[in-house]
Simulated scan of single mutants.
Amino acid sequence: MTAVLSTAQDAFFDVLKTVPLLLLVYALLYYIENRLTDTPALLSRTAQFGPAVGALAGSIPQCGFSAAASALFSAGYLAPATLVAVFLATSDEAVPVMLAGGASAKSILALLVVKFVLAALGGYLLRCTVFRRREVKLDEPLEIELNACGCGEPLPNILGHTLKTSLFLFAVLLALDLVLLAVGEDRLASVLLGGSIFQPLLCAVLGLVPSCAMSVLLSELYVSGTISFGALVAGLSTGAGFGYIVLLGEKQGRRRAAPVILATFILAAVGGTVTQLLFG
Rank of each mutant, 00 (worst) to 15 (best):
residue 1 M to L: 05
residue 1 M to N: 03
residue 5 L to T: 05
residue 6 S to T: 05
residue 6 S to F: 02
residue 6 S to G: 01
residue 7 T to L: 06
residue 8 A to D: 03
residue 8 A to V: 10
residue 13 F to D: 12
residue 18 T to F: 03
residue 20 P to M: 03
residue 28 L to N: 01
residue 30 Y to Q: 03
residue 38 D to V: 02
residue 39 T to C: 08
residue 40 P to A: 02
residue 42 L to S: 08
residue 46 T to W: 13
residue 56 L to H: 08
residue 57 A to K: 02
residue 58 G to A: 12
residue 68 A to Y: 04
residue 68 A to D: 06
residue 71 A to Y: 06
residue 74 S to P: 10
residue 79 A to F: 00
residue 80 P to H: 10
residue 83 L to K: 09
residue 85 A to C: 12
residue 88 L to Y: 03
residue 88 L to K: 04
residue 89 A to V: 14
residue 89 A to C: 14
residue 90 T to W: 07
residue 94 A to Q: 07
residue 94 A to W: 00
residue 97 V to A: 08
residue 97 V to Q: 03
residue 99 L to P: 01
residue 100 A to G: 12
residue 102 G to M: 08
residue 106 K to P: 00
residue 107 S to H: 02
residue 111 L to Y: 01
residue 120 A to V: 15
residue 120 A to W: 12
residue 128 C to Y: 00
residue 129 T to S: 14
residue 135 E to V: 12
residue 136 V to P: 04
residue 137 K to A: 15
residue 137 K to Y: 00
residue 140 E to C: 09
residue 142 L to V: 14
residue 145 E to I: 11
residue 145 E to Y: 09
residue 146 L to F: 01
residue 147 N to F: 10
residue 147 N to T: 11
residue 150 G to N: 06
residue 151 C to A: 13
residue 159 L to S: 10
residue 164 K to G: 02
residue 164 K to D: 06
residue 166 S to I: 06
residue 167 L to C: 14
residue 167 L to Q: 00
residue 174 L to P: 08
residue 174 L to C: 14
residue 175 A to P: 10
residue 177 D to M: 11
residue 181 L to I: 04
residue 185 E to C: 00
residue 185 E to F: 10
residue 186 D to Q: 13
residue 190 S to F: 12
residue 192 L to M: 15
residue 193 L to H: 05
residue 196 S to M: 07
residue 202 L to D: 07
residue 203 C to M: 13
residue 205 V to Y: 02
residue 206 L to K: 07
residue 216 V to D: 04
residue 219 S to I: 00
residue 221 L to T: 02
residue 223 V to D: 04
residue 225 G to W: 05
residue 228 S to A: 11
residue 232 L to D: 09
residue 235 G to C: 08
residue 235 G to Q: 11
residue 236 L to C: 09
residue 236 L to R: 11
residue 238 T to V: 14
residue 238 T to H: 09
residue 245 I to R: 02
residue 245 I to P: 01
residue 245 I to V: 15
residue 246 V to W: 05
residue 247 L to F: 08
residue 249 G to S: 10
residue 249 G to E: 12
residue 250 E to A: 13
residue 251 K to V: 06
residue 252 Q to C: 08
residue 255 R to E: 15
residue 257 A to V: 02
residue 262 L to I: 12
residue 263 A to S: 15
residue 267 L to P: 10
residue 267 L to R: 07
residue 271 G to L: 12
residue 274 V to F: 10
residue 276 Q to T: 08
residue 276 Q to F: 09
residue 278 L to A: 15
